[in-house]
Amino acid sequence: MNDQLKARFDAETKGHAIVLYMKGNALFPQCGFSARALELLRPFGAVHTVDVLADAEVRNGIKEYTNWPTIPQIFINGKFVGGSDILMELSERGELADLVAGKSPA
């Protein structure tokens, strides 16, 4: 991955408490997993969304950046949390609020 793209991801993921790399945007999610991730995150604050379908470099780059093979990808407080399965599990365990508040390692 080039330095410019890595710098972009660094800034983007640290610049907002909750960042969601998704297929489609908040108004029109293009994938059920992305839509579900957005709904799970919304109660915990503003979600900064990035549409990976708008830019192939971002779509491929984010997978390399996290070494994680699928979209959506969720960052909370600058830290990679995982994809939709992990988000769902954290939600069921009731750990999302603490994670957003910076109280849990997740």
Binding site: W68, K79, F80, V81, G82, I86, P105, A106
Partner: peptide, 10 residues
């Protein structure tokens, strides 16, 4: 123990 869920899955 002490790992995030992402790390556990990896």
């Amino acid at each position: 123990a002490g790992r995030t869920m992402v790390e556990q899955h990896q």
